[in-house]
Write a protein that binds this DNA or RNA. Structure first.
Lengths: 187, 187
DNA sequence: CATCGTTATGTAAATACTGACATATGAAGT
DNA sequence: ACTTCATATGTCAGTATTTACATAACGATG
C-alpha cells in the first residue's frame, strides 16, 4: 500500500539501524560488505529510502558536523520503526524471484560452442570458489573469536546463520560449475 | 545501449525460440514451468519483449487462426536472432544481484521472537523440501527415459544441467532452513 | 600545484518487474 | 442458463533497481 518501511530494502535498513544509529554512508558501506551478500543496494537507493522511512516516522536524523570530513546525517530508529522490523522479521519470507543468469546459460548451453561454454563455467566456478574461501575465512575468525556456535548469543548467531547460508550457497554453486565444465569438456 | 535482445529476458526468449517457434502464450507457459525455475517472467513482460525483439529484427511472427481457440501469433527466430543468442550464451554470466529475503531475515533474526522465527524457517524448509522432491522426480524421469547422463546429447544435457542446479540449490537451502530452525529452537 | 581516493549526500533517466485491469473464444461441468 | 477454466493477447500504474550525473571537503601522492 505504500506505507513507509514497506519494501524489503526499507526493512533491511531498519534492521541495521536497530543495532546502531548510522549515516546514509554507513548504511551504504554495510550494504556493500556483510549485508550485500544477500541484499545488495547502492547509495542511489539508500538515500531516498532513508528519506521515505523518515517521512513515515520510522527513523529520525540529526545533522552531525565533522572536521576533516563532510557533515553527516545520523539516522536513529524510532519506536515505530523498531516495532515494524520486529513484526516483519518473523513473517514468512517470500521465495526470491529466482533469476540466475548462469543457470539460464546452462539451459541454453547447446546453442554455444562447447569449449567456450566449458571455459565460461570453469571461470565462473573459480569466482564462486574465491567467494567461498572468503566466507570460510570469516567463519574461522568467528569460531576463533566467539567460540562454539552453540553458545553464541542471538545477535552473533544471526550473523553466523547468514554466513552459513553464504558458505552453503557458494560451495554448491562452485561444485556445480566445475561439474558442468567437466561434462562440457567431455570427460 | 537498448539494442533489441539486450536484456536477459530477451535472450531467454530467443533461446526458447531457437528450439521451436512459439506463440507468446507458449513462451509464457515455458517461463512458468522449466525456465521459470531460474528465470521467471510473467506475460506482461513477455508480450512487450516479443514486440521489442521483432522491432529489432530478432524474431518475426505470423498470425495463425485457430478453431475453438483465439488466434495466435507464432514467433520464429531470425538468422540475426540466432546469431545474437549464440554469441551471448558463452559470454561470462553476471553473478546475480543476490537478493534473498530469507537470509536477510536470518541476519536480523535476533530482532524477532525465537519460537516464531524457528517456525518460519521450519515452514520455509518444508517449501524448499517440496520443490526438491519435484526436481528429483523429474531427474528420475530423465534417467529412466534418456539413459546415462554421459550419453545425453547437447540439448538433453543442457536440460539436465539446469535441473542439477535446481536440485543442489534446493537441497542446500532446505538443509540450511532446518539447521537454522533447530538452532533457534535451542537444541 | 594537480590529481586521486575517501568521505559524504544527493538527483535523474532509463530499465526491469509486479500486480491489476481489460477483452475474447470455446469447452466442460453444474 | 451459469460459471469456471484454459487459451490467447494485450495495457497501465506503480515500484524497484541500475547507471550515470553532480557537488564538495580534505588528505595524500606525485
Amino acid at each position: 500500500m505504500g506505507r513507509a518501511g514497506d519494501s524489503v530494502l526499507g526493512f533491511a535498513i531498519l534492521g541495521l539501524l536497530a543495532e546502531a544509529s548510522l549515516s546514509g554512508y554507513d548504511v551504504k558501506l554495510r550494504m556493500a560488505e556483510p549485508v550485500g551478500f544477500f541484499w545488495r543496494a547502492s547509495h542511489s537507493q539508500i538515500y531516498p529510502e532513508l528519506a521515505k522511512l523518515e517521512a513515515g516516522g520510522m527513523v529520525v536524523h540529526k545533522a552531525v558536523p565533522q572536521s576533516g570530513k563532510p557533515d553527516k546525517k545520523v539516522y536513529e530508529i524510532t519506536a515505530d520503526g523498531l516495532l515494524a522490523v520486529r513484526e516483519w522479521v518473523s513473517l514468512p519470507a517470500r521465495l526470491g524471484p529466482t533469476r540466475d543468469e548462469a543457470t539460464l546459460k546452462a539451459y541454453l548451453s547447446w546453442l554455444g560452442e562447447r569449449g567456450e561454454m566449458a571455459e565460461m563455467f570453469r571461470e565462473l566456478g573459480r569466482k564462486h570458489e574465491g567467494q567461498l574461501e572468503k566466507y570460510e575465512e570469516t567463519e574461522r575468525w568467528m569460531l576463533r573469536e566467539w567460540g562454539e556456535p552453540e553458545e553464541f548469543g542471538a545477535r552473533r548467531f544471526a550473523n553466523y546463520a547468514a554466513l552459513r547460508r553464504g558458505i552453503g550457497f557458494e560451495r554448491e554453486y562452485a561444485e556445480w560449475c566445475r561439474w558442468v565444465a567437466e561434462k562440457l569438456e567431455g570427460r
